[in-house]
Nucleic acid binder design. Sequence first.
RNA 1: GCGGGCGUGAUGGAAUGGUAGACAUACCGGACUUAAAAUCCGGAGGCUUCGGCCGUGCGGGUUCAAGUCCCGCCGCCCGCACCA
Length: 855
Amino acid sequence: MSLEERYNAPAVEAKWRTAWDDAKLFETDNDDPREKYYVLEMFPYPSGRIHMGHVRNYAMGDVVARYRRAKGFNVLHPMGWDAFGMPAENAAMQRGIHPGKWTYDNIAIMRTQLKSMGLSLDWSREFATCDVEYYHQQQRLFLAFLEAGLVTRAMGRVNWDPVDRTVLANEQVIDGRGWRSGALVEQRELPQWFFKITDYAEDLMDALGTLDRWPEKVRLMQRNWIGRSEGLKMRFEYDGEAPDGSGALTVFTTRPDTIFGASFMAVAAQHPLAKALADRADVAAFIAECDRLGTSAIDIEKAEKQGFDTGLRVKHPFVEGRTLPVYIANFILMDYGTGAIFGCPAHDQRDLDFARKYGLPVRPVVRPTDADDTFGVGTEAYTGTGALFNSAFLDGLSIAAAKAKVADALEEKTLDAAPQGERAVNFRLRDWGISRQRYWGCPIPVIHCETCGIVPVPEADLPVKLPEDVTFDTPGNPLDRHEGFVNVMCPQCGNPARRETDTMDTFVDSSWYFARFTAPDADKPIEPKVMEDWLPVDQYIGGVEHAIMHLLYSRFFMRAVEKAGYGARPEPFAGLFTQGMVTHETYKDQAGNWLFPEEVVLKDGPPRHAKTGEPIIVGAIESMSKSKRNVVDPDDIIANYGADTARWFMLSDTPPERDIEWTDAGVEAAHRFVQRLWRLINEAKTRFDRPGTGDGTTLQKAAHAAVRDISADIEALHFNRAVARLYELANALQKGLADDVPGAILKDAVSKMVVCFAPMMPHLAEECWTLIGQEGFAAAAPWPAFDEALLVEDTVTLPVQVNGKRRAEVTVEKDAAKDAIEAIVLALPEVHKFTGGKPPRKVIVVPGRIVNVVA
RNA sequence: GCGGGCGUGAUGGAAUGGUAGACAUACCGGACUUAAAAUCCGGAGGCUUCGGCCGUGCGGGUUCAAGUCCCGCCGCCCGCACCA
């Protein structure tokens, strides 16, 4: 082969992918006795084509998988499809294609694309969540959860589109209107299925502390999401008759210390008390107004605090004769705490706003330590630390002490033979509503019978299959109007009954797929022993957009799986890494239309349109998106430069957790390096048998140091640094060739180098591996060893500082004594110059690092 | 508003409290070429009276030594948000 010949990546890459496939190199045996390593990237939604974000995600995962394989682990690295969801139904509505066909066609395309990346995946374990077999097993899990008491049915509020007569997801509500119909969306209460994730709120919170290989940021987000707060549940006795028949109004508070500052009570519009009063027209009108209020962030910001005085009064628990008015208020949430509060305006901003509006008393009861009795509150509530005052038996106490004292007092005090207060922990976390009124999802396997109630579909009748003959020409859930699907016999009494038509949230599908990968063909959802062997996933990689829901649901799911008897691995992901996005410049023409990068010329002159020559506007660098057209198709890059170039670029320069900017210059540079490596290794190979005339120790050391550093960098997921080390090693090899170092050293350095870049550029590595006469696959070659002793220098060069400024350097024996170094340093003319010849006040010698002379 | 993160050359970025700017891009010079591309060799933080001085968003502090630790600002990004 001529050295001038360029490396033909597309041809070479295809050849090696076939060779890997034929050798079944990446298929994993569950019975392999070696230590396991499970690496997983978040599986893709089959939207149609892969994008650069996938390339980055899977390139990273593949580096980890190939590295661990080389290190001798039994690596599991599977791939599948998160295949249920709305886009398939939208395609069906818009183009009349069945969601299943649309989905499987997309999968076929994307599978081919992923395969062209040369990922070391075990494709024999592939599945899609819309496969009947997968959702069959999911239905069995659902029934097991139901059996275990982890599933409930309750009223839940949904977005209802009155024109399309359908439930909308939050994302489908745009400015309060249905995205298709444009109709004003209403809030409706419908019976919904829920998973009881709140049963595990405490455990999900506590166990976050054990996830030490998760980003702190993600753990924090989950902590905030679960939202634990400690406080007091307290009951306020009505001053008179209560319309709902209860003797007391129960609230949850985290500030029982401020009880003497309480000046009103407020309940949510959905509170039972409000409902009990709703036969009054004015109350009903107020409730209706609250219901109309949107739940979006903007709505909330704009909304003024509004209240309705019910005329009811409750008694203050400690002040004889003081009563508090009870309001219905729009800022109280029914689904947090008890849906009712006591308002203490002086120490809560919302309560203060409310009190000012309705002319309620503002009584400060906590004051800063440097304030006196005249301490007051204007337009800003005081939420800082301090001491209690105006508070009878609490006066002078700290906030913490006062909280405890009030709790103690109310726990002793009784009302209707029960303690009036109870210490309580409240969570922000709600139960997980899994009902979706859609077709393209996993059917919930229950039957509604008038006499028997809710009846699980018997095991023998599973799976509940999605009917194929459905239409999407009318809005709403096609399952609802499919007579053959809906009308069934009750499995218990045999009378006519109605099948549940809700399907499961697609987050359910992705909450256990990683467990299914361990035994994808098992005739039960999860093979407990196998799952326990493989889980937790050692390294999970994906986007930070899944930091809360997907990861929290999966953590809950594995706890539920354990309770349902399918094996105990409550924490599914031991290591989590969230990678950054892929960004690109944006371009617009004069008319303000977005332009694709290929429509734009940036070189040689001002930016202009490729066809019209019209000047264009270069916009901000933003995350790649179809709407802004700042996308680059991975297929084009792979066809032009090869997968190795694309992978190498995705791993270079930018730390993996940050956003990476895609640039043509960057791809070109990556591709030049592919070609350069090929040239260098070809050149080196011709010299393997020559004795050489130069000294090879520099190259030898560089090779060993590179192995050490690249190993550490990959293990820490610092791919950009590993890439830099490989550039250094290539530079050292080039220098070695110029210096004509011995062939044996060249060969050793090249062999090490090829295995070291194989995780990033696996095809090139195979081609080079064969070229230099190595046996077998580079992908199966063991990770090279390095000799630490070789990297220890006999002498060491230390920088010499005078007063912290670098003035000279000295080369000394590695083991030189501090005194000896000090003597040498003090004799240096550069040091004399800056000390003025005077004896130094102090000399700091850090062996192997630095010397600092303090003059 | 609350919580978190980040500010380093023209650019992406590197740097266990120990020589700031590794590595790469862009740029400049040289070799090769009729020429260009590619390739190879080399240069390069700023200022300078050529002695040095100044440099990691700004201002303080700790330390023999600070990009790194502490305090206070400024700016940008992300998450959550009427959560009692």
